[in-house]
Design a protein around this nucleic acid. Structure first.
Length: 415
RNA sequence: GGAUAGAUGGGUGAGCGGCUGAAACCACAUCCCUGCUAAGGAUGCGUAUGGGUAACUGUACCGAGGGUUCAAAUCCCUCUCUGUCCA
């Protein structure tokens, strides 16, 4: 959630910044007005309530002293009607404000490039050089089927389209990758956690998936519970509504979970293969930091994901997302894109974001900042998407006969 | 699924419907005293939000949501969660 005080104080700046994320100034104007209206309504209610409280106190004193309370009672009853009216207006204003405020995305950092969509993202650097093939490299689905690693039809049989099944070495490799990634991240100081795959509405509101993106989520039929679209949700919300001690920070965590996404609006995109599935494995990094250390930790997370790809000998590049491509909660994001020779292109395999205090404000995650409480910064990033890593391994390590060489670092995990 | 007990501030744990935003203890912070593997004393110490330069002060919050009342942590209802017992 954006800082309403800041909006009130420096409307133009906020509005300019958010316009880069495609937020209409009118919407913000509206938010500002709603905020002011709420303040007025609250002030009225509180004044009336103060009067009521003081009269009630008098009432007690009167009774004790045996004085007549008829007149006071009349006054108090009259005031009571005004209070209930004032309270109702305040409640309506509050709801209006909240529902609007919760749907406004985070303010992008100043160094976020201008741009409309992914075509305006800015490459930072390439890491490792893609190998030269003496033959035409195949795409991963062909290799996956040829090697008997992945069965797309049977996934559909069990569930629906965009589900797949891994067999044999395909399944083993997935498991090896998960373990390798978790160990790698642990060595970099990210503590391993294992969390629920189902979360409640408050958790999703905390990280920003709700209320705006309910269509992307799988929801349980009988309860207000959802399948997680990313481990970011349960892991970040671990500290929801808590005030952390300054010396607890930074908290750096890594978690493996399955992720579930409806991929609404992705019709026709990546329909073939396992680039875009409804269920996929992912190892995530989440950090909770003091504001002044979040940039440093952000870089550390990007570096960790990049080093992980390098350890797997996968060529990749770092891309700074432009304003228009930035996610709802992100102030800045760097994507890691892995080279896929079969597709002859770089594809997203990790996305590292600093949400600054956007999620912390929603999830009420604070820390003791000297003698006052401040919001923490929260960051998240994949390290890495397992399915896409498997895809990258297949395409980069393929041989002319369609067989696949296993990256050296994974062999200890496969014995 | 049924029965029953419970849910209070960082922790333990009091709390007659009004003087309770909440005793006490622990923890924590600052200071004092003293000095030896310690102890003692003083003060402060919940969260959010409004007003005020500040001192200070208004409002709300004792699992959540409703209700009764001039007045609710305290009474009533519903729900959630936890413990125990039964199936």
């Amino acid at each position: 959630m954006i800082d309403l005080k800041l909006l009130q104080k420096d409307f133009q700046t906020i509005s300019n910044k958010l316009s880069r994320k495609g937020v209409d100034a009118e919407l913000l104007e509206n938010l500002k007005i709603k905020n002011e209206e709420l303040k007025v309504a609250k002030a009225l209610y509180e004044t009336l309530q103060a009067a009521q409280n003081s009269m009630s106190k008098d009432f007690g004193i009167y009774k004790k002293e045996g004085k007549d309370t008829t007149e006071l009672k009349a006054k108090v009853d009259e005031n009571k009607i005004k209070i209930s009216e004032a309270l109702e207006t305040q409640r309506i204003k509050q709801e209006a404000l909240e529902s609007l405020a919760m749907s406004i995305p985070n303010i992008p950092d100043d160094d976020v490039p201008e741009g409309k969509d992914e075509n305006d993202n800015v490459e930072i650097k390439k890491v490792l050089t893609p190998r030269e093939f003496s033959f035409t490299p195949k795409e991963h689905w062909e290799l996956a089927e040829q090697n008997g690693w992945i069965d797309f039809e049977r996934g559909v049989k069990l569930a629906t389209s965009r589900f797949s099944v891994s067999f044999g070495m395909g399944a083993k490799l997935e498991r090896a990758l998960i373990n390798f990634m978790l160990n790698f991240n642990s060595k970099r100081g990210f503590d391993e956690v294992s969390v629920p795959s189902i979360v409640n509405r408050a958790a999703l509101e905390g990280t920003g998936q709700l209320p705006k993106f309910e269509d992307d989520l799988y929801k349980l039929q009988d309860q207000e519970l959802f399948l997680i679209p990313t481990a970011e949700v349960p892991v970040t919300n671990l500290y929801q509504d808590e005030i952390l001690a300054a010396n607890q920070l930074p908290i750096k965590m890594t978690a493996y979970t399955s992720c579930f996404r409806k991929e609404a609006g992705a019709a026709g995109r990546d329909t073939r293969g396992m680039i875009r599935q409804h269920q996929f494995h992912k190892v995530e990094l989440v950090s909770i930091t003091k504001p002044q250390q979040s940039d440093e930790i952000f870089d550390e997370m990007v570096q960790t994901a990049s080093d992980l790809l390098s350890a797997l000998e996968l060529p990749h590049r770092l891309v700074r997302l432009c304003g228009g491509d930035l996610g709802f909660g992100a102030a800045k994001t760097i994507d890691l894109e892995v080279w896929l020779p079969g597709q002859n292109t770089y594809r997203e395999i990790s996305s590292v974001s600093n949400t600054r205090e956007f999620q912390a404000r929603r999830a009420k995650i604070r820390f003791k900042d000297g003698d006052k409480n401040s919001f923490v910064h929260t960051l998240n990033g994949s390290s890495l998407a397992v399915g896409r890593t498997l895809v990258a391994i297949m395409e980069n390590f393929q041989n002319e006969d369609g067989s696949i060489t296993i990256p050296k670092v994974l062999t200890p995990y496969l014995s």
